[in-house]
């Protein structure tokens, strides 16, 4: 992979049932400048987007709404309803 391409990538993390759905704990995708909604439509539809729509999203470890723009280098985490405690 060329360096320029690498710089436009974001890391997407999956947990709990979404990790089982995707079959891996993370993906690296080109999503610089997209919203979370666009990222889902472009990269996650094959896994069934409705499953991602009930999850929260965290960008760089803080909750963020779906219309937030993603920047290269960001870490996006899909957080299904939590059940700690």
């Amino acid at each position: 992979m060329k360096r320029m391409e690498g710089e436009r990538m974001v890391e997407v993390l999956f947990f709990a049932e979404l990790r089982d759905v995707v079959g891996k704990d993370k993906l690296t995708v080109a999503a610089d400048g997209m919203t979370i909604t666009e990222l889902k439509e472009k990269w996650l539809t094959s896994y069934g987007v409705e499953k991602f729509n009930v999850a929260m999203v965290a960008i760089n470890e803080e909750y963020a709404p779906d219309d937030t723009l993603v920047k290269a280098g960001d870490v996006i985490a899909f957080i299904p309803p939590v059940s700690g405690g």
Binding site: A16, V82, S83, G84
Partner: peptide, 24 residues
């Protein structure tokens, strides 16, 4: 903790497993 902390539990029963979410 049950509202905002990203931690999940998976139930292991005799007849199956399930990731538990507040949603369920």
């Amino acid at each position: 903790i049950k509202e905002i902390v990203p931690i999940w539990k998976k139930e292991h029963w005799e007849d199956g497993t399930l990731w538990i979410g507040d949603q369920q």
